[in-house]
Structure formats: C-alpha cells, structure tokens
C-alpha cells in the first residue's frame, strides 16, 4: 500500500481545502470499500480526508413525509431508523440485504453510493481493465462476466454497479446533495449521479474533484403506495446481487396500476430505473403477461453476454414476483 497522510476534517470547508491542496487526496468514510481497494493496489491516495466528523450524521424526517439522510449516517443506523422503517421500508430492506452486520455498522450513506464495481479484473492489478487503466482492454467481455451487466454497457466495459441501497433510492426518487469545492451546494437526481461507461469507463460519476456528498433527500412516498425490495443471489445471505428489484406501487380499486416505479440492481453500471416498463404498466393489471410485455420493452436494448443472459429472464421474473408480493396478500399465494 502506498504511504499516505491522514487528516480528520472538522468542517466541510476544511475538508474541501485539504482536497484542493492535494490533487491525490480522497475522502474516507467507513473505509470498507476504499481501504480494501488500497490494500489491493487499485486505489492509492496520497492523503485521506476523514469525513466522519463533519456532522452529516443525522436522519431528519420532515413533516411532509420526506427525509434528509446525512452522508455519514451508518448503513445499520439508517436501516434501523424507525421512521425509515415505517415510511420507506424498501430502503431498510435493501440495506439489510447487503453486506454483513459488521460491514453495515461501519459503512456510510455516501460511501455506499460510491462503492466500486466487484468485477474481478478491476480488483486484480495484474490484469488489464479499462476502468482501472484506461485503454488497457476489457478481459471481462471474453472472460468472466457472469455477474456483470446486461444494460447500459459498452464495448469498453460491462461492469455492474454492485450496491443494494442505491437501487431502493432510485425507486424512491432520491436526490443527492453535493457540496462543491467552492462551497456551492447542489442537488441532483440519484440516477444522474452515475454515468454510463461509453468509452470512458474510468469515469463513473458526475462528481468533480473535491465534491463532497453531504446527504440524500427522499421526497414523501406517494400516498397509498406500497414498496418492496427483493434480491436474488448465489447464497442466502452475504453475497452481492445477481439481480435485485425495488418497486413502489399503487393500484386503483379495480386492481389496475395507478403509479409504479421500478429500479433494477445487478444488471447495469448504475441502479437502473426501468422507466419504459413503468410506463407500459400504467393502467394495466400486474399480470404475468403484462409484466412480460413491459419487461420485454425495457430489455429490448439489453446487450447480454453468453454467461449473463440469464439475468434477462431473472429480472423479468423478479419484477413479476415483487409486484405480486405488493398486490396479493401472502395467504392468497
């Protein structure tokens, strides 16, 4: 591991100044991804600026039903927060479906959003990888890609965004609050935080150097809507998603869909908001045939590889299962 300086910033201005002074500085939160990547030689910051004392450590519920989640709130605290469990149970479920108890009690909101892909070549510095070393090639396309993406990929990179929490946040119309190096605050939709690989897979987000995530805002969930998160993985617990689905659903008296929001995990370089499927489903019953048709439209542009084409059927089945969970009481199934 490359030697580095460590600074514990006490306020955001100081954190920004420290990063401004040192071009190879990185923010440190729970460290559960960054320290791992530093050990692997994938990341090598010259300075770590610890952001955990900046005061972004609260979950503030608003009277209108919305919430502001601080950037350094621990994943375990957020999943356990009574207001989140009551108003946004799919968010708690998504967090609890990820990692382990001890990882969640160190990991933070912002760190979770910015976790890097688990592509095995990316994590192995002896292998080429366009994301880690631009222009070196993508061995995953002709090699080990079973866990990687089928949507939004390019000829340069097929990595998946691996996280769970952000998938639920995408379905909940989250806004990410960012403080720029100049102290200017801005907010952007969570989906716009991530950029697709194109021919620059090393660029994963719209964040500029020194941009500090300060929190995530959720608007009130639609009145009368139900929400859910499900994850399919190779073992029952403690594994990354093959495919996951977050859904927010409201049906009319006759069972037709009034409002639906679907986000897919494990299939794309970012949490994938399935807007085509959503609009196909409006006004219809969530029958298997309708789900099949809607997901067929959503996945029309997919670029499956030989070993991950199974994700297309899996995503369709999982969307169907989640909508069924939300519309049929358990005893009827």
């Amino acid at each position: 591991m490359r030697p580095f300086a460590y600074e514990r910033a006490e306020d955001p201005a100081e954190a920004a100044a420290l990063v401004a002074e040192r071009p190879d500085a990185a923010f440190l939160a729970g460290g559960t991804n960054l320290v791992d990547l530093m050990k692997l030689g994938v990341a090598g910051p010259g300075t770590l600026v610890d952001v955990r004392r900046l005061g972004y450590d609260r979950v503030e519920h608003r009277d209108d039903g919305g919430v502001l989640i601080g950037a350094t709130v621990k994943n375990s605290e957020l999943a356990g927060d009574p207001g989140i469990r009551r108003r946004f149970p799919a968010l708690s479920r998504a967090i609890l479906a990820g990692a382990s108890g001890q990882l969640r009690s160190a990991a933070t909101t912002a760190g979770n959003l910015l976790q890097r892909t688990r592509c095995v070549y990316f994590q192995d510095v002896t292998k080429p990888c366009n994301k880690r070393e631009p222009g070196s090639g993508c061995p995953a396309i002709g090699g080990s890609h079973r866990d990687l993406a089928v949507l939004g990929t390019s000829d340069h990179c097929v990595a998946t965004y691996p996280g769970d929490m952000a998938v639920a946040l995408a379905a909940l119309d989250a806004l990410v609050h960012v403080r720029g190096l100049d102290g200017e605050a801005r907010a952007l939709p969570l989906e716009d935080l991530y950029v697709l690989p194109g021919d620059t897979p090393h660029r994963e987000t719209v964040l500029e150097r020194g941009d500090l995530i300060t929190g995530v805002e959720l608007p009130a969930a639609p009145a009368g809507a139900a929400m859910h998160y499900r994850k399919v993985r190779d073992r029952w617990s403690y594994a990354f998603a093959l495919v996951s689905v977050a859904a927010v659903l409201r049906t009319a008296g006759d069972g037709t869909i009034d409002e639906v929001r679907l986000a897919l995990g494990g299939v794309a370089p970012r949490p994938w908001r399935a807007r085509t499927a959503e609009s196909e489903l409006i006004g219809k019953l969530p029958t298997p045939e309708n789900v099949q048709a809607a997901m067929g439209a959503e996945l029309a542009g997919a670029r499956p590889l030989p070993d991950n084409a199974f994700k297309l059927d899996l995503a369709t089945d999982l969307v169907g299962a989640v909508l069924r969970d939300l519309t049929e009481p358990e005893e009827d199934r």
Partner: peptide, 13 residues
C-alpha cells in the same frame, strides 16, 4: 459499541 471488521478499519481513523 458497534461490531466492525477491524481489518478494514485504519488504526489512525
């Protein structure tokens, strides 16, 4: 008071 993986926590932090 919280369980953590000490292999991913920096002592300095």
């Amino acid at each position: 008071g919280r369980r953590v993986n000490s292999c991913l926590q920096l002592a300095v932090a």
